[in-house]
Design a protein around this nucleic acid. Structure first.
Lengths: 158, 158
DNA sequence: CTTAGTGCAAAGCGTTTGCATGCGA
DNA sequence: TCGCATGCAAACGCTTTGCACTAAG
């Protein structure tokens, strides 16, 4: 993944801090560790990936807590959840919205997901006003067939 | 839902016909009945909704068959599946692509989903070319807070 | 006649929850 | 100290599957 991994740790931490305070929730080591690990992940990740990594770094957290925390981070706007067909939920850190948001190309054959950028759509959506609805963010999924699958299909039909 | 319910039954039937023939699958009454019922639904619907309606119209189908059929219809490009947080999968008929596709406004508070149209985005996406990826369709989800929820929240904070 | 499709119930799997214990405030 | 957060395992809800039976081609 060529995404630039310049995530401002301080900024993300503050976001969690703020959310916890506002909701009067506790600052537990688990919550910060999970966030830490989420920042380390270089692509979309599943809850299981997080658990695995945390355990590999010898920090024990129960899966239940990871599920809870991830949910909390989504509510806090720090993570975003994607549910692609036939796979468990995937999450990703929401990096600075100042830069262009990315969208997703999803292969209907193999389920592979690729990230792309499209500043034009981004700008358009940011400027769009909906009557009575206050948009916070958006996700765009483009479904189709990826290059390797279309190549494979072409071969088979020969 | 103000969606214009001018679904060309013949056209949808043909799509299923074609798909079944191509995949060398059988034309069973269940498959056509499920499709029939899907056409009747005026909004997004869940598998359970379909079963309920079919039973109400005294056509018995098992839930397993409805699940299988709906999956088949998605593969055939006749239905589209949406997975909104905290709710079972929802489906909708894919109407003529000649007209503008619709997108979704999803309330983060109450989960309500509203359909909207945006010809500009539609056109933009149709014209976009992705290297090695062949797009077939896309879904755009705009997350935020709906009017009634933001009103409710404003009241509470007084 | 062959074998894919169906119905039923049981299994599967990601996710949530209940309860006892631990720890942040 | 008080009560929220955690860990564990059990429950949950949507979805898929296995098997015997039915019916499409």
């Amino acid at each position: 993944m060529g995404r630039n991994r310049v995530i401002d740790r301080q900024l993300v931490y503050c976001a969690l801090e703020k959310f916890l305070e506002q909701k009067k929730m506790r600052r537990t080591p688990e919550r910060y560790k999970v966030l830490d690990q989420a920042i380390e992940m270089t692509t979309h990740f599943k809850v299981d990936d997080l658990c695995e990594q945390l355990n590999a770094n010898s920090f024990h957290v129960s899966k239940a807590t990871v599920y809870n925390t991830v949910q909390l981070l989504v509510e806090a706007g720090i993570l975003r959840r994607h549910r692609f067909a036939g796979q468990p939920s995937q999450y990703e850190i929401v990096v600075e919205q100042a830069q262009t948001n990315h969208h997703h190309l999803i292969c209907r054959e193999c389920g592979k997901v690729k990230e792309i950028k499209d500043a034009a759509i981004d700008n358009h959506l940011r400027q769009t006003v909906y009557r009575g609805f206050h948009p916070e963010y958006f996700t765009l999924y483009v479904y189709g067939v990826c290059s390797s699958c279309s190549r494979r299909k072409a071969k088979l039909s020969k």
